[in-house]
Computed example of a mutant assay.
Amino acid sequence: MRKQHIKDTFGSIDIYLLDQILKGTYDECDMILDAGCGTGRNLLYALKSGAKVFGVDQNPEAIAQLRLFASSFPQVDPEENFKVVSVEELPFESETFDLVISSAVLHFAENMNHFEAMLNSMWNVLKPGGYFFCRLASEIGIESLVRFVGNGRYILPDGSERFLVNQEMLLRLTKKIGGELHEPIKTTNVQNLRSMTTWCVRKIKSS
């Protein structure tokens, strides 16, 4: 019963996003965007809490499922809040959101220019003082096991091809976009098959 209660509350949420929620990091976040939301596995708790939730994804079927699911929550307009659009072309005004979620999206970048286009698009719609939660593949801990194929992309030991980051790159990008880490960079090594890194950044308020 307890397990079912937890799933009813949080759904299939990313465990590292749940970690931030349980810490209270996002308690004051009312406007939330999931950029690359899929069917909305990371959005159930936010919807239930009454937040104004938005999502974009390039998969029309995923957005259709999310619109149907979210239609029971009065604070959202499914057709307006959930769009079929690419992350690098977000259809929102600058500084709109308190929290932007990017879960398993940025490692599909075709090259560094594409990566930064997606990152800058998400950062642009984030309010000063807002939070950016990102989970993405990295080479951290498996540097000797990945094979570079060009344009920032690598073949991982699990056979997949991904755009990979490392700690130096994330620290440099944090500074470049005008952010600050509010949590240390954390990486999970999955039996030397792949590494997934959690990058939690807050947008610095202008003085």
Rank of each mutant, 00 (worst) to 15 (best):
K176H: 10
A62W: 08
K23G: 06
C37A: 04
I177T: 06
A104S: 13
E28F: 13
I15K: 08
L136K: 04
Q4E: 11
N151M: 07
G152D: 04
L99C: 09
L44D: 03
Q20W: 06
L44C: 07
M169H: 06
G141P: 09
C200W: 11
L181H: 13
F148V: 00
T96M: 09
Y131D: 09
L173P: 00
E183R: 15
S144G: 12
P60L: 03
A109P: 08
A117M: 03
F133C: 02
C134Y: 00
S12C: 03
L193M: 15
K7A: 12
A35C: 05
S94A: 08
E168F: 08
K52A: 00
F163N: 02
L106E: 04
D77V: 06
T39I: 14
V85M: 03
F92R: 05
L171Y: 11
G55Y: 02
E95D: 13
S195R: 04
I155L: 15
E88T: 06
G150N: 06
E89W: 00
V84K: 01
M169Y: 10
F54K: 10
D14I: 00
I204H: 00
F108V: 07
N120T: 05
F73R: 03
K205N: 08
N192S: 13
S207N: 12
R41P: 01
T9K: 15
K127P: 05
M196C: 03
D57Q: 05
N42Y: 12
R147D: 04
S206E: 14
G141Y: 09
I32W: 09
S138N: 11
G55M: 05
I32T: 09
A70S: 14
K48E: 06
V105Y: 02
I21S: 01
E89N: 14
D30W: 14
T96V: 02
N124T: 12
F97T: 01
G141A: 04
Y131M: 09
C37W: 06
F97M: 08
L18W: 10
A64N: 09
E28R: 15
L22K: 15
T9L: 14
A104W: 05
S160W: 10
N120S: 12
V56E: 08
E61Y: 08
D77Q: 10
A70R: 05
F97Q: 08
T188K: 15
S195D: 03
Q4Y: 07
P128E: 08
R202K: 15
R172L: 06
Y45L: 04
L119A: 08
R202D: 01
F69P: 02
F54A: 07
E89P: 00
F10T: 07
W123I: 05
R41C: 01
Y45Q: 05
A137K: 13
L170W: 03
D30L: 14
K127A: 04
R153D: 10
R2D: 11
V84Q: 05
D8A: 14
V125D: 00
S71M: 06
K3T: 07
E168L: 11
L22V: 11
T39D: 10
E161W: 06
D30Q: 14
L90F: 03
